[in-house]
Design a protein around this nucleic acid. Structure first.
Lengths: 314, 314
DNA sequence: CATCTGATG
DNA sequence: CATCAGATG
């Protein structure tokens, strides 16, 4: 994967898990309660730069639900984005279109930027920045235009894989959109299957589901909350049955307290009361190329944190 | 006027015109452009504590359009309010009700607090804080209940006067409410007349009119702007014909650049491009008791500044 | 250029 | 407890 203007420093990826973007003043939910008896400390881990058969990563992808790109940039979230020196950056819930986007994003010259804002202003929207120009870029699910108004996915085709970034529909308070969610999940799954028949697929983004009990702090009390209903979890399982793997859980089957989302309410992040909603899912046949799947839990700027994939594609 | 818990320091009133409430960081429109050729400096003047016949003030009233009481308190506006040690504090455009009001206001124990929030949440609303309990308190124009939904006036009766605080309806962009404004002005004027027949009246608040050309920076270009139409100015003149006086202009007939409102747009306040919209108007027969009518132009926290009345009521 | 609400998460 | 839009000033 040749890059324009990219200088990969050998330990660039390690910075992800160590560096903390300074968020703005009083709103920074620092780990003040880390000493509390109930509080888990968000741990950071060394990033693996090599495959199990010893090949160094040559592909780095960042995915982040920014919960409003303009707000995230105001909080200096873009600094982390670009310091990460990723080959591809996928952003969800940008809540703006290219026209209203911060210049810090839209005027980057070292990335090719693609926008799928969705029709309703200020809602949803995804964005993909790529150091190399993808072979093709598609918005939504081409075969299902009925989903295309909401600005939820971008598919970028590369030489060796399809990259799909997605902001999966939230089932809503009171699960008012749970039914639509099922339709979405089915259609999206079929779409991924069709891609996977052509090339391996990497799917990233806010999939709006915590798969198993280990993937959220309070599984017991959230069985009827959007993101942890049996329906949503079963749809995710169905996805994985299509020879796709949840990279993070594959690498760290027992790791607890690994979340990518914490509600802003009640100081949840300081107490690490969170959910793992942001994923890198990939075709089984890419597993041999996987180096690491990282949750950058210390990066501020949104109610989600970024996640990062490192792979060594042949 | 006996006060509960009031300790009047002899020069307390002087602090008004000197002290500057520190507003929050970048939003403070400091007088950065004071050196510009176009910029007028906002001047402060010594406050007169005595009537022309040598009696010291025993009544201090503050009036302030806070443009959102919650926002104003966040910017520490309440500190100035209470440092002023006024007997009565009248607030307009509070944009909240008693329930949502900041504790800094509603939990004061040294004032009796009265709320007229209006029905539409987040719009208009006035509030009156009084060190002594008024003899009576009324909301709206009792004879004209058709105006009472908007939360625009409170009338507090004291031994020697009625105090009416008012947030007069803005005629709106494109003068869409100019017609309603006329109805309001007529009804309100009749109401003040009826009060004045019983006791002298002090009217304060955001009257949403700049009376004469001297009362705004750009009279020529604003003849069709809400607040400076001939209709609104004529209605104000009609009010004054009812033996009421514009205390500030009576005391300072030629003072230019004396404004109480500056739009947030375009850095107007730094350039003192403003309007005098906030008044103390009183019955002619109280003029002998007037000490001063002050525009506290250096007090931040709103797009309006407070105004202060000092009087020595017999 | 600010303040709100109300929708959304 | 945040984001954004849209109404209002």
């Amino acid at each position: 994967m040749p890059k324009k203007g990219s200088k990969r420093n050998s330990d660039g990826s390690n910075e992800n898990s160590k560096k903390k973007v300074k968020a703005n003043n009083k709103k920074d939910p620092e780990l003040k309660e880390a000493g509390d008896s109930n509080a888990e400390v968000v741990k950071t881990y060394p990033v693996k730069e090599y495959t199990s058969d010893g090949r160094k990563f040559n592909l780095k992808i960042v995915s982040w639900n920014v919960a409003g790109l303009r707000a995230c940039v105001k909080k200096s979230g873009h600094e982390w984005m670009f310091e990460s020196d990723a080959d591809i950056i996928c952003l969800q819930e940008i809540k703006c279109d290219a026209k209203n986007a911060p210049v810090e994003i839209k005027d980057r010259t070292d990335y090719s930027v693609h926008w799928n804002p969705g029709e309703k202003a200020g809602h949803n929207g995804v964005c993909l920045l790529s150091k190399t120009e993808p072979l093709s870029v598609k918005f939504g699910i081409p075969e299902k235009p009925e989903h295309s108004a909401e600005g939820r996915t971008i598919t970028a085709e590369y030489d060796k894989f399809y990259l799909v970034t997605c902001y999966v529909p939230n089932s809503g308070r009171g699960l008012v959109r749970l039914e639509y969610r099922k339709t979405w999940d089915e259609d999206f799954r079929a779409y991924l299957k069709s891609l996977d028949e052509k090339k391996p697929v990497i799917l990233c983004g806010d999939l709006n589901v915590a798969h198993e009990e280990i993937d959220l702090k309070n599984p017991k009390t959230n069985k009827k909350t959007a993101g942890f209903t049996l329906q949503e979890r079963d749809e995710f399982k169905a996805l994985l049955k299509q020879d796709l793997i949840d990279t993070f859980r594959k690498l760290y089957p027992d790791r607890e307290g690994a979340y990518s989302f914490w509600t802003y309410m009640g100081g949840a992040r300081a107490k690490n009361v969170g959910w793992r909603l942001d994923y890198f899912v990939m075709s089984q046949r890419l597993e041999k190329d996987l180096c690491d799947s990282v949750i950058n839990a210390d990066v501020m700027g949104s109610d989600h944190c970024p996640v990062t994939l490192l792979a060594a594609l042949e």
